[in-house]
Structures are given as C-alpha cells and as structure tokens.
Design a protein around this nucleic acid. Structure first.
Lengths: 163, 163
DNA sequence: TATTGTTATACTCTATAACTATA
DNA sequence: TATAGTTATAGAGTATAACAATA
C-alpha cells in the first residue's frame, strides 16, 4: 500500500499520473510553479526587444532613477555588485544607458538612460503590460491587486525576518 | 527634470532612494521579488536536512508516487530528463531512494523511497510547514488560500497559453 | 581605512545533442 | 524506429574574494 502523506487529494493532479498534493499545500511551491510560467512568457515577450529580465529591470530602474550609482542599482535589484557589471556593459554597448563620472566622487558612475534607452524602456513596459493582460486574462483585477499586495507583504516581511 | 513613467508613486520605495514604482505594478515582478525571499528562507530551512529544493521536491514526489519513472518525475517537476539524473544520484547515494529495474520494461527505473527516505521526507515537510508559518505569519489563512488558488490558475492558464 | 567598480572564479539551475540499452 | 536513462556540454543567474582607483 502506497504511503499517503495527505489523507486524500481533492484536486486532480496536474501532470498525468503524478500526484503533488503534499507540495501543493505550500504557497512557496505554487509561487515557484506559477512564476516559472510567467518568466517563460515574459522572456519570450522581451526577446524581440533584445532584453533579458535582468537588463529590462535595470533599464527601467535607470530611466526611473536617473543618476543612480551601480551600487544603488545592485541593492535595488538584490543582485551582487559584480553581477551588475555585465548587465550595465550590455546596456551601455547598445547605447541605451551611459556611465557618467561624477566629479564630486570619482569612484561613482552615475547611470543615465539615452533617448534610445528611454524609448526602448517604454516599449518594453508596454510589452510587459500586454504580456500580463494576456497571461492573467480572466483573473479579476481586484484579485490581481490583492495578489500584488500579498507579494509585497511577503517580500518585506520575509526580508525583515531573514535578517 | 527626471523622466517619470508613472504619474506618482503612492508607496514608499523599498530600497532607500531607488523607486521601482513602474515595475511594482506588475504581478510578475512582485512574484519574483517575493519568491526570492521565500526561496532563500526555504533553502536555509532545508540545509540542516541535507536537502536542496530540487532534491526535496523529488523526494516528496517519489514518496507520494512510489514506482514512478524518472521521465514521469522529470515531467512532473518540469525539469529536463538529463538534469534529473544528478538529483536521483544524490538521493540514491544517501540511500533515501532506490532505482529498481522493472522486469516488464528494462529501460525503466521504478523509483521508490527507503524507510529513511520516507522519514526524512516527513521531517522536511514539517520543516517546510514551520518555515511557511513563520514567513507568512500575519497573513490571514483565507488570503493564503486565495493566493494558492490564484497561483494554480496562473500556472495552468499560462501553461495552456504558452502552447 | 572604507567604498566603487571591476576581475576572476565557482556553484547551482537549466537546456540541447548525442550516446546506450532496451523495446 | 522509438523510448528511458545517461553523458557531455553550454548557458544563464548568483555568490565570494581580491584588486585598483578614489575617498
């Protein structure tokens, strides 16, 4: 007799023949599975624009916060400073952003977007909106809003608790 | 004058001085940021048990679905078959699961958990529950349930839409 | 001394092609 | 031929240590 970790499985398993009821009770598991779907779709959405999720995020934050330093951006994106170098290299080589030396503190690069960068950023944001509208079609806007708020709660509560 | 992609930012930025309002409107962005927090905490939770998220997931699914094949498990976990080999190797070397040849079809390995594997699985599930209770403390159970249902909707709707 | 950006490096997760043994 | 498991390999994403330039 198979060992049952859950008394019974009310929902039908998603993958034919394999039951993941014991894992589906966890929000984290469902977040991962759902995010995999979102990420795959967003990656395809950004590909025609020549952007990855990381370069897209960096570009938007630079456009929105002109003059910020690489350290500030790395902290905002929750990536280590060394990993940001290649991301900015890529954006700079495509002339989407500029590294400007700051006279007052010559250690810092002030990051700014070029007009082309701003234009691509706006295209990417529009594509992202269309991607989410398509992917989340049928989910009530009120529910989406609740989801976003809950995700922000998890993000901040977890970040505090981890410290 | 800085370019504003959003008319105004109602919430305070999470990282000092850097505003991510244009991205925070997206559920996908919030899912990623929130899941990063959950993943970091779960990884630390599983570490004392010698498990990674991937080996943990595989172990639970094998315990719950004794006799399934590596291909079935790979499909259930949404990983490619080659990547599962190392995961099963790791579990097998620790004597948590067994690869049993199936006489009827000698190409297939039937995966089963050993008593030690079942025991560790139950410990890991308990640790996962404690981790989520701690991380999501303060979020009403009703909201958690809504979140899980919404994540499952995204997962299945997205998976269909991507095809 | 401390910080910014950088290089080098390594580890995990993921993806593809090609092999073997079985069917 | 087709499938299950495997090997080899490569690409992302992420993390740490150490360095040069600057403060």
């Amino acid at each position: 007799m198979p060992v049952r970790l859950t008394p019974n499985a009310p929902d039908t398993p998603l993958v034919s023949g394999v039951d993941d009821a014991a894992l589906r009770q966890f929000l984290g598991y469902n977040m991962k599975r759902a995010f995999n779907v979102v990420q795959a779709d967003l990656t395809q959405t950004l590909k025609p624009l020549g952007l990855r999720m990381l370069t897209y995020t960096a570009l938007v934050l630079i456009v929105e916060n002109p003059g910020l330093s690489q350290s500030q951006l790395a902290a905002a994106m929750d990536v280590e400073r060394p990993n940001l170098v290649e991301i900015i290299d890529e954006l700079e080589q495509r002339a989407l952003v500029l590294r400007r030396r700051v006279p007052a503190d010559r250690r810092i690069y002030a990051l700014t977007a070029t007009p082309e960068g701003i234009q691509l950023c706006q295209k990417a944001l529009a594509a992202d909106k269309a991607h989410e509208a398509r992917l989340f079609e049928g989910i009530p806007p009120q529910t989406i809003e609740t989801l976003i708020e809950a995700m922000q709660t998890v993000r901040t509560r977890g970040a505090l608790g981890a410290k």
